[in-house]
Design a protein around this nucleic acid. Structure first.
Length: 427
RNA sequence: GUGGCUGUGGCGAAGUGGUUAACGCACCGGAUUGUGGCUCCGGCACUCGGGGGUUCAAGUCCCCUCAGUCACCCCA
């Protein structure tokens, strides 16, 4: 069928796009305030980048990537997330050699995952994300979380909770993994099928299983927070201290496990209620080994990503809206062929002057033209008929009051500048 | 990958198997000659996602298929 788009994708029509642009404007502004600069990376990358970066055993890499080969070349994948590409670009362009101690980058754009779509989940979806590369200061962890909350606050969103955990470093994780497997070994057969698979490959994920039986079986299981090494423990404590100082409330959630392998230490997720089953509107964490993993120097990093569709969904749910300015400012209505020519000429002049001008193209009745002007919600309609043509003038009708007054053709620009822009110009 | 629900004009939505498929919104035109938003009048579905079947008769029943949607899973 030529007339339907691929499953899980969306057309954004002009009214909707206005909302997106307003959201993007806000994101760019907040980025600036926190010192982040935009980076734009390709929409597709070498598949290995995600395999190695995100992790072979993650759902994203295992079953959700759009992977293809082009003309017998290597395997490529549409990006399923933004961190690996950003880090790749950071390394490839040697941004770590720049003078600043921490490089702060943000991105905004489409991501692709082959899931079954549902409320708040799409195959092409859009993320805004930040990455702060080069510092392992816990103050930065806290600031990153605070920044995410700052964005939601500016949007007017309420009732969001920060779920916080530390997933430790590779060392404490290894310890935890062993203890966990010891704990679960006698119950292994009772776990659900996917968890039996997770037992060897990624046992931490079993703690996060939604299956009620698995949840019961994992009661009392060793959680990572009990087994953090001294360094991870003190880092985590410091992060919380900074969060208190920044007055960011959070819930400690020792079962929070992020589905991307690169996370270490701080992991967090921001959850909204009322937008369906996909409640997470953002999440992130620290990824101190990733830069090295991708082939760069051993440098720490932290970041988060927000789902734009979900933010808009949550805003809609809470009765919030972002609106763009009314695009059309002036409408030109004409009667007769000569007047129409004059109208064309005038509309071009006014556009040069910076006014958004619209007119009717069907050669329709004058009444229909005014009706159209009303629908555009313009401030003024310029009326040109035979009389006006003869006298080199137009009628300027104020659509709100219904009043109109004659203005000399040469004075129209001045009139509109004064009344729409509020500025005087002398010619 | 699995499951539930839905599918009637641009949108919303009625329609116990039986003549011309309600209604609302939107849209278009008109209500004396060059003036919108309100009101009134008129117009707007050879057809009920598609295909097949049952029946004298199907939008209404059955099967298949496609699409949408929600949920599992996972995540933004």
């Amino acid at each position: 069928m030529l007339t339907n788009k691929p499953k899980g994708t969306n057309d954004f029509l002009p009214d909707e796009v206005g909302r997106w642009q307003a959201l993007e404007d806000l994101l760019r502004e907040v980025s600036r305030l926190y010192g982040y600069r935009e980076i734009r990376t390709p929409i597709f990358e070498h598949t290995e980048l995600f395999q190695r970066g995100v992790g072979e055993t993650t759902d994203i890499v295992e079953k959700e990537m759009y992977t293809f080969t082009s003309k017998g070349e290597k395997s490529y994948s549409l990006r399923p997330e933004g961190t690996a590409p950003t880090v790749r670009a950071y390394v490839e362009n040697k941004l770590y050699a720049q003078p600043q101690p921490t490089t702060k980058l943000y991105y905004i754009g489409p991501m692709f995952r082959h899931d079954r779509p549902q409320a708040g989940r799409y195959r092409q979806f859009h993320q805004y994300g930040i990455e702060a590369l080069g510092s392992d200061d816990p103050a930065l962890d806290a600031e990153v979380i605070a920044m995410a909350m700052d964005i939601y606050r500016r949007l007017g969103l309420k009732d969001l909770t920060v779920e916080l955990n530390s997933v430790g470093c590779p060392n404490c994780r290894l310890q935890h993994r062993q203890k966990l497997q010891e704990f679960l070994a006698p119950k292994k057969e009772q776990l659900c099928k996917t968890c039996q698979g997770r037992y060897e490959r990624n046992p931490m994920r079993i703690l996060d299983c939604k299956d009620s039986n698995c949840q019961k079986l994992t009661e009392g299981a060793p959680t990572i927070d009990q087994m953090l090494c001294p360094e991870c423990q003190s880092h985590f404590t410091a992060v919380q201290k900074h969060l208190h100082a920044l007055e960011v409330p959070y819930n400690l959630n020792s079962k929070l496990v992020r589905g991307l392998d690169y996370y270490v230490k701080t992991a967090f997720e921001i959850v909204a209620t009322g937008i369906g089953a996909q409640g997470s509107v953002g999440g992130g964490g620290r990824y101190d080994g990733l830069i090295e993993q991708i082939g760069g120097p051993a440098m720490p990093g932290i970041g988060f990503a927000l789902g734009l569709e979900r933010i808009l969904l949550a805003m809609k749910e809470q009765g919030l809206d972002l609106v763009a300015d009314n695009p059309v400012e002036v409408f030109i209505a004409t009667m007769g062929e000569d007047a129409q020519l004059m109208g064309s000429k005038l509309s071009q002049q006014l556009r040069q002057e910076g006014f958004a001008v619209e007119r009717d193209y069907g050669n329709r009745s004058f009444k229909a033209q005014l009706k159209a002007a009303d629908r555009y919600q313009v401030r003024y309609t310029l009326i040109i008929g035979e009389d006006e043509l003869k006298n080199n003038m137009v009628q300027v009708k104020d659509m709100a009051t219904g009043k109109q007054e004659p203005v000399a053709l040469a004075e129209v620009q001045v009139y509109l500048n004064r009344n729409i822009r509020g500025r005087e110009i002398n010619e």
